[in-house]
Design a protein around this nucleic acid. Structure first.
Length: 865
RNA sequence: GGGCGCUUAGCUCAGCGGGAGAGCGCUUCCUUGACGUGGAAGAGGUCACAGGUUCAAUCCCUGUAGCGCCCA
């Protein structure tokens, strides 16, 4: 073995071996209880970023542990076709040749997207392999593959038949860049500086004017009314009158509507039904015409009179100027307001009236809320449930049609002869109403999230009743960031309950965002993004994985710093060298894959075995609660400060002794082996490599999870460590070389010390012990309970330094005494505190008293400075 | 405006009713035969602030301030 850990060498070969062995498939544990997670499908355009790394590593930690625990584990990978994103990528390629998608035509364009998918879509799967993800590639799915497309069609038709999908003219969010509708959550709002423009609309009868306020002046071209609140006394006379729309000279009515906020602007608002959702509602209630004044690319159309042809932003200024010229501009106020942007291209979205397909969400929402309230699906951390309820209770219908080409085409046809709309599972040949064959399929495709919403069951074969579907639905866990609870989690719950009659998953584990070390969001545009593949190249996949797991407290954002990775790599080196040490004392391949704890462990071995059993139990508790950061923190500290720093050191003396050598070898082997098992879900490569050396039997990835041994801890270990600590502090404060041997006389009235102590004291701190008290010369004491060790001072140390050391210790002891004494002198404390708490403080006071007495005596023996 | 978090050692964060913890950083010592990617010892916190509950509050309650996120 190399003297140092080389991640690149360790990580070279194992993935292929794992994959070929079939250990990643559920068939590995055919009789186990099913446990399934479907991977949130990355976009087919995607490359692995830190967010994926965090998400995927949490998945793999859960999955690998469950597999080792004997579950029939399926982790199903796949990709999302990512409609707009993918289409944009291919359109950009076309643009290099000076072409648009319209030049090549729909059919050929889609062929090109598929070709692109074949060529580049596998990038992320290669990267997932590098990270070591134990997914079952034989079950990989794609949202556009044949089976999933069938599921999408079945769901669409079924919802349509139930009246839960409808087509209608509504105000939707329109992206003038992508030329498509967006759903509400694909719009991101930002506060921007803007102007509130106050415009005077003269009453047609000449009796003065009304003033309305707007941030989008150009929309006045499409005004068909003015609205005021019915209870607003300022305008009671105006209701029912008409005003003449400036610039357009259109006579429009003043109506009263509850929705108007009297506090906003002047309390009178212009009504543009085609360009504002509230105005659309007002218009509907009062029979106002909806005049669309914009083209799809947000230029003023022929309905905008002389402004037609201007871009909306240019038109805004032109309209303001024209109003000012005509004397209709009252005034302008500076104002910040919230502006919606396309979440993909950041273009300002336009509220736009158009004919779209919608999912009626109200009937789906109730069971989805109930499923979480009743605990059938649980959020971890729980607090996300509130956000979920709040969002679900305020949902508007979901606009699912997109005016793009890449995606599941809407299975609706319109008859050119009789206008019948046909929605069917099989493509229709003729109109069922008039038997005509002049059928035209809807041009639109579905929102990408429509197919994602079916992911937990469509990937398992639904609508067919496959064995996988029977075994793995509901999924056990969903792991995702809070940013897509609404996009995805909520919709999977709705669809799962509707079509599978059960929740899609039991637990929803929500993790945070990966942030840059300075706490800002990691992004390419800020230039502070860390590429996980660079980290893998420079430090290895295992160190990256361990760093991410340790840094990710549940539900908290993860401030990512390369120092974490450095630390994780150092840990890998430490583990590597611990294994080298162990393999220097036992035969390679000699450790059993499970069990094999020594029957008669010596005291040191019994101690580490009992600690291992404690840690294993606690680790499992934490992991079951998805607290992987705490679980691996616990394990890391146990491995380093107890196994490596203490047990490996203790084992050296025990190995030299023929009587204890065998048990010690056995213990070293099984303790290291169990560490490898516990660490395997986090650092699979390194542990597999070391397992191969140590056990050499089968794959660790398919091995059994450890069960705790029954060893009982010797009580004397705490006292022993205290004694060693005392000796080390004594050496440190007097700068004595660790090599310099010391003689120590020991008094032990309560027989705390055990027979194994002397050889370990010799081995660890070069102290030779003998029982008795010093008779001549000055000495100092190190204490472990009632046991005292006397170390010689004369000729060894600087007495002033010793005095200072003792005084420091005395001060600390006196503080301890004070604290306990103060509590115990309080009668209420004695009355009301539980007996064991009082007893504990009494014990503390007694010990502090004894310590003080010893230290004072010692100071006296030293004499004055 | 509504909601949800956060405020603990220089930094990043755990802990959450009975004497403040980890990693990194810092100081001192150590070429110990697994490892200097190491070992040993140490310094460093009125647990944001103000009230309250309690024998006891970093932890529970109320309020204040600052920061972050989500929704409107």
């Amino acid at each position: 073995m190399n003297p140092t850990y080389d991640p690149a060498a360790v990580e070279a070969d194992w993935y292929d071996i794992w994959e070929k062995s079939g250990v990643f498939a559920p068939e590995h544990n055919p009789d186990g209880e099913p446990f399934c997670i479907v991977l949130p499908p990355p976009n087919v355009t995607g490359v692995l970023h830190m967010g994926h790394a965090l998400n995927h590593v949490i998945h793999d930690v859960i999955i690998r542990r469950k597999r080792m625990q004997g579950y029939r584990v399926l982790w199903l990978p796949g990709m999302d076709h990512a409609g707009i994103a993918t289409q944009t990528v291919v359109e950009r390629e076309l643009a290099h040749e000076g072409l648009t998608r319209h030049d090549v035509g729909r059919e050929r364009f889609i062929e090109q997207v598929w070709a692109w998918k074949t060529r580049s879509g596998g990038t992320i799967t290669e990267q997932m392999r590098k990270l070591g993800e134990s997914v079952d590639w034989s079950r990989e799915r794609f949202t556009m593959d044949e089976g999933l497309s069938r599921a999408v069609r079945e769901v669409f038709v079924s919802l349509y038949e139930k009246g839960l999908i409808y087509r209608g003219n509504r105000i939707i969010n329109w992206c003038p860049q992508h030329l498509t509708a967006l759903s509400d959550i694909e719009v991101e709002y930002e506060d921007e500086a803007g102007e509130l423009v106050f415009i005077n609309y003269p009453f047609t009868d000449g009796s003065g004017h009304l003033t309305v306020a707007t941030t989008r002046a150009e929309t006045m071209l499409g005004d068909t009314g003015v609205a005021v609140h019915p209870g607003d006394g300022r305008y009671s006379d105006a209701i029912g009158k008409t005003v003449t729309l400036p610039l357009m000279n259109r006579e429009i009515p003043v109506v009263a509507d509850e929705i108007v906020d009297p506090e906003f602007g002047t309390g009178a608002v212009k009504v543009t039904p085609a360009h504002d959702p509230n105005d659309f509602e007002i218009g509907r209630r009062h029979g106002l015409e909806a005049i669309n004044i914009l083209t799809e690319s947000a230029e003023v159309n022929e309905n905008g009179g002389r402004f037609s042809g201007l871009d909306r932003m240019t038109a805004r200024l032109a309209v303001q100027d024209a109003l000012a010229e005509g004397g209709h501009l009252d005034h302008i106020e500076e104002r910040t307001h919230s502006v919606g942007h396309c979440s993909r291209c950041n273009t300002v979205v336009e509220p736009y009236l158009s004919l779209q397909w919608f999912v009626k969400v109200a009937p789906l929402v109730t069971p989805a809320i109930e499923a979480v309230r009743s605990g059938r699906t649980r959020f971890v951390p729980e607090r996300w449930e509130n956000s979920y309820y709040h969002w679900m209770e305020n949902l508007r219908d979901w606009c699912i049609s997109r005016q793009i080409w890449w995606g599941h085409r809407i299975p609706a046809w319109q008859c050119g002869d009789c206008d019948e709309v046909i929605v069917t599972r099989e493509d229709p040949a003729a109109c069922p109403s008039c038997s005509g064959s002049n059928l035209q399929q809807d041009e639109d495709v579905l929102d990408t999230w429509f197919s994602s919403a079916l992911w937990p069951f469509s990937t398992l074969g639904w609508p067919d009743e496959t064995p996988d579907l029977a075994a793995f639905y509901p999924n056990a866990v969903l792991v995702t960031g809070f940013d897509i609870i609404f996009f995805w989690v909520a919709r999977m719950l709705k669809m799962g309950l509707e079509f599978m009659d059960d929740v899609p998953f039991r637990d929803v584990v929500i993790h945070g965002l990966v942030r840059a070390p300075d706490g800002r969001k990691m992004s390419k545009s800020l230039g502070n993004a860390i590429d996980p593949l660079d980290v893998i190249d420079s430090h290895g996949a295992d160190p990256l994985r361990l760093a991410v797991v340790q840094a990710a407290a549940p539900g908290q954002d993860v401030p990512f710093d390369m120092e974490w990775v450095e630390g994780a790599r150092k840990f890998g080196n430490k583990l590597w060298n611990a294994a080298r040490f162990v393999l220097g004392h036992i035969e390679a391949g000699s450790v059993p894959a499970q069990g094999g704890y020594p029957d008669d462990p010596g005291p040191e071995a019994a101690w580490i075995l009992s600690r291992l059993a404690d840690v294993l139990r606690r680790f499992d508790q934490l992991a079951d609660e998805y607290r992987f950061s705490d679980a691996y923190g616990l394990l890391y500290n146990f491995a380093w400060s107890e196994v490596f720093d203490w047990y490996l050191e203790l084992s050296k003396a025990a190995l030299d002794d023929q009587e204890t050598a065998r048990q010690t070898q056995q213990t070293l082997g099984v303790v290291l082996r169990d560490l490898l098992k516990l660490f395997h879900p986090a650092i699979p490569y390194l542990t597999e490599e070391l397992w191969n050396e140590l056990v050499g039997d089968g794959l660790l990835a398919g091995a059994e999870w450890p069960t705790p041994s029954q060893a009982a801890a010797p009580k004397s270990m705490d006292a022993f460590q205290e004694l060693v600590g005392g000796i080390r502090r004594f050496r440190a404060s007097h700068q004595l070389s660790p090599r310099q041997g010391l003689q120590m006389l020991v008094t032990d009235p309560d027989s705390i010390a055990e027979s194994w102590w002397p050889r370990q004291l010799e081995s660890l701190v070069a102290v030779a012990t003998e029982s008795g008290q010093p008779t001549a010369g000055r000495s100092t004491r190190v204490v472990a309970g009632s046991l005292q060790g006397f170390l010689p001072l004369d000729g060894v140390v600087d007495l002033d330094a010793e005095r200072a050391r003792l005084e420091r210790a005395l001060g600390a002891a006196e503080e301890d005494f004070e604290l306990a004494d103060r509590k115990l002198s309080n009668p209420s404390f004695r009355d009301r505190a539980p007996a064991e708490v009082v007893a504990k403080d009494e014990q503390k006071r007694k010990e502090a008293e004894a310590t003080i007495a010893k230290l004072r005596a010692q100071l006296d023996e030293l004499g004055p400075a």
